[in-house]
Design a protein around this nucleic acid. Structure first.
Lengths: 212, 212, 212, 212
DNA sequence: CATGAATGAGAATTCATTCAT
DNA sequence: TATGAATGAATTCTCATTCAT
């Protein structure tokens, strides 16, 4: 084909490009679908329907429904890890690390929002379904948790129960994040401030509500 | 039988007893199965398999898979509500309410443990299904959240962001509870103390770890 | 029991009476249900629901769903046969026999109407179902057909194709009867007149419509 | 292939052909099965069993059991309508229209015979289900009825009770047709002659039987 | 590689019939 | 006998995965 003459130098032929684009398209579609329906309810057809590909093509790129799911998790973790690492490098003490990590997490959450619109829809579904989460989201959680636990273990924080603390931080960040996305306007700073204050100083340290 | 002297009025023949027992058995089995597999993956056969009943019997007691799910939620909420209410009546200020509510929740969690063995199994499952929760558990969460939010709105707590705070308390209690159940020996007081301290005073107020 | 003193002489104890009444109740309920839903769609529970009996009782009186169905057919035939026989005895030639038989059939049809209300309902059902008929109805048809065929074979009618003629008479009587029941007011004479005229004299012999 | 010259425009690949063939095979199987067992008793498995397809394939072509049923009706009506219309155009008066329509119906019935072997089987079935009819057959009936009723209303026939007459014609045609198919040899002309004579002239106009 | 029809195991649910009480 | 809960085979329909084109 004529097109071959154009992209010879990088080993990225038109074929290569299409392959990459297709993989990405499937991944993105899967992100949305898993977010909206959950792993079990989502069907492979649901995924490819948001794509201009065929069922067969799906299986050319991923060997199974489960494999996309895992790829999605990998993808999320891979993208979030550097952000988190940066926070670690820039922060001196535990307090600023927590602050940085939580803010980073909430920002990442907001940035990815359109892919994860699920919350709203999933919440008021008639069929009872528990807490639907993107594998990607889970992976990000895992990253944060590992980071916090690691910091604690390296002695950068008071010798408190590291496991409980990490779990609590994650829980708070996650829950606050979820509420944050449902508010209008979305205010990352406010949410981050709240979460950080609670974790660092507890109830008494929380910012006083200006409204209601 | 001696019992005859006591319950003549309610029609408690052998049949009645069996019916009650079967309803309970199905509910119990459903609790386990939903906990281990999640609503979507769990099949009606999975549920009745843990029972000495037949598929047909399931439908004699509950009209659909969805109905057991709801019955389960009702059941959990019904049992936990009075416990929570008692905490509210006995507590004067927000601090003692939080303390009471969280301890009550963790105790309830422990008491129900055998029905919720899920955690362990759910963790090392191959099929990816995140954060599996019993509808019952979710109902209990809803109770706690409503209670906390109510207390805050009645002004028994500083005027902070009630929504965020309630969400955070729930999140912490839940996550700590989950970890608590995985430790040996299970120490409710320790877990409650940690959660309460974090919520009330934050990181600096946390009890120092005696062990690593 | 005191009641036993009253009905000693006939061998019809209270028990006996109840048994007969129950059989009749089931048969009547079945007539309605089969008429409304058809044999396959109708369930045994549908039948006993129109009765103050239990599922178990059903099986005390009839060994199976199929058996009630057959009993119903027998019942219908048994009640219609004497009516038909009377027509035969009173009629001298084929013409008056046909007239008598068809009128008798249409009258019987009307008399049983309340048990056979099905037509209307069955007609505009959403689920496609073909021509639902009471087994009783079928049995009555069979009677009529046998009678007509018999008369023809005994030479009381011109030597035409007896099989075709009987089939046609039955078909006409049945179809006219069905329409008749849907008209208001229901006019047996008019219907009978039409059917008889068509069969005996064809199109040109039909009564002219006074209306429309 | 030579055929290529003819049908280049329609996309008739091997796949397309298979699809068409499969749709037809399912429809044909459904025709038989509904005819033999009736809509309710017939199962989807019964249908696909007469096919070299799988259950899944059935649902690729028809969304439900009900949909095949309707497709079948459409198919029958679609094929019979032009035949009937031709009779109408060629006939001047009512008599010749009736004659043409009935003969056309009986010919159509014979032509479709192999698809409707039901009669024989349906007759000696143990499960009681009366008068089993293909939806297709019913649709054809509906066509005939509408045509006859239309002709009557247009005044091409004496002002008799149009509803009763149409119903009667249909009934006779149908019943005679059914008997006709059971005779050997099958004689369409004889059957048509009988039906037409009965309808037009009644009993006295019927052809005398040469045989018993 | 792409396509999308075919496959068939498996899910929810119903219902005739049995049987302990 | 009456009762109605228990049984489980059978039904409709779905969906991940394969494979001929």
């Amino acid at each position: 084909m004529a097109a071959d003459l154009l992209d010879l130098n990088p080993p990225v032929g038109k074929r290569e490009q299409t392959k990459v684009a297709n993989r990405a398209a499937i991944l993105e579609a899967a992100r949305q679908v898993f977010g909206e329906l959950g792993y079990d309810v989502a069907t492979v057809r649901d995924i490819i329907r948001r794509t201009d590909l065929s069922v067969g093509a799906f299986y050319n790129y991923y060997r199974s429904k489960e494999e996309v799911y895992e790829a999605l998790a990998d993808d999320g973790a891979r993208r979030f890890r550097p952000i988190l690492r940066k926070q670690y490098q820039e922060a001196g003490d535990f307090e600023s690390y927590i602050r940085g990590a939580i803010r980073a997490y909430l920002q990442f959450l907001l940035a990815e929002e359109e892919s994860w619109q699920q919350s709203a829809q999933a919440a008021n579904r008639n069929h009872p379904t528990l807490r639907v989460e993107t594998p990607e989201m889970m992976a990000v959680f895992a990253e944060v948790k590992a980071a916090i636990a690691g910091v604690i273990e390296r002695g950068l924080a008071p010798r408190v129960d590291a496991d409980y603390l990490a779990a609590s931080c994650i829980a708070v960040a996650r829950e606050i994040g979820e509420r944050m996305l449902e508010r209008r306007p979305i205010n990352v700073e406010e949410a981050a401030e709240f979460a950080v204050a609670l974790i660092l100083g507890g109830l008494t340290a929380l910012p006083r509500s200006t409204v209601s």
